[in-house]
Design a protein around this nucleic acid. Sequence first.
DNA 1: GTCCAGGCATGCA
DNA 2: TGCATGCATGGA
Length: 272
Amino acid sequence: MTYERVKNDIVVKGVECFDLDLTLDCGQAFRWVKQEDGSYSGVAGGYYLNIMKDGDCFIFKDTSEEAFEGFWRHYFDLDKDYAAICERLKEDELLASTIDTYYGIRILNQDSWEALCSFVISQQNNIKRIKLIINRLCAAYGKDLGGGSYTFPSAETLSKLSVEDFEALGTGYRAKYLERLSKGVMSGEIDLNKIKALPLDEARKELLNIYGVGIKVANCALLFGFEFYSAFPVDVWMKRVMEYYPDGLPECFEGIEGIAQQYLFHWARNNL
DNA sequence: GTCCAGGCATGCA
DNA sequence: TGCATGCATGGA
């Protein structure tokens, strides 16, 4: 991966296996919006970004080197060799055909707080409505970046809300989970940085102690917000996929179960 | 109107 | 430990 500064943009070259549609609109992040020109706009890490594919380049529009190096490079996992990972996953028959059809899914390294909140909201919910609720949450309580963009609100901000405030966003019965989660993180009772530093099993155990967090939400948070590539979330779609693996997961998934899962999840949603 | 969605807490056996 | 049930909301 190399990049250069062209006017106000960062132009990235040499990144393989990166499809914007598959990565930004596959149910791992909920704040990216496709534009008419095929680019995507969104907010993460407190930054607004418009990103476009141009031939074999990716253009990060109006982006400083500080923002690219300090945030986006890691967010898009640009230093991981996903092409090699895909070759390994293709040892599995179902993954081989899935990767041929949907090549270019990457795992985004999202903020742990945002990921945890987002997946608490996601439970017993569909992706369209998850986006709707999160957009309302950000517009109401996030920092205004201008142009209709808002950051994801901090735990400090959300810790001041009541259950009724969360209900007003359409979160339904999840309001009480979000209320307790926000106050728990704000008080330090829930320490997300500490959880991030733990081994996978212990980190998962800590997350499962949180009111409103079960095994599925914990694994999604671990994979998308805590950099645990071995986490393997099983939702209603993945339960259908698991019938294809009656003897357990194949050996080639080891250490990258979460990446395999994203391909299988996408395949299931389009084919089952 | 009914069914479903990147499930979880709770009560009960 | 495992299973049944209730839960908010909006789109299909």
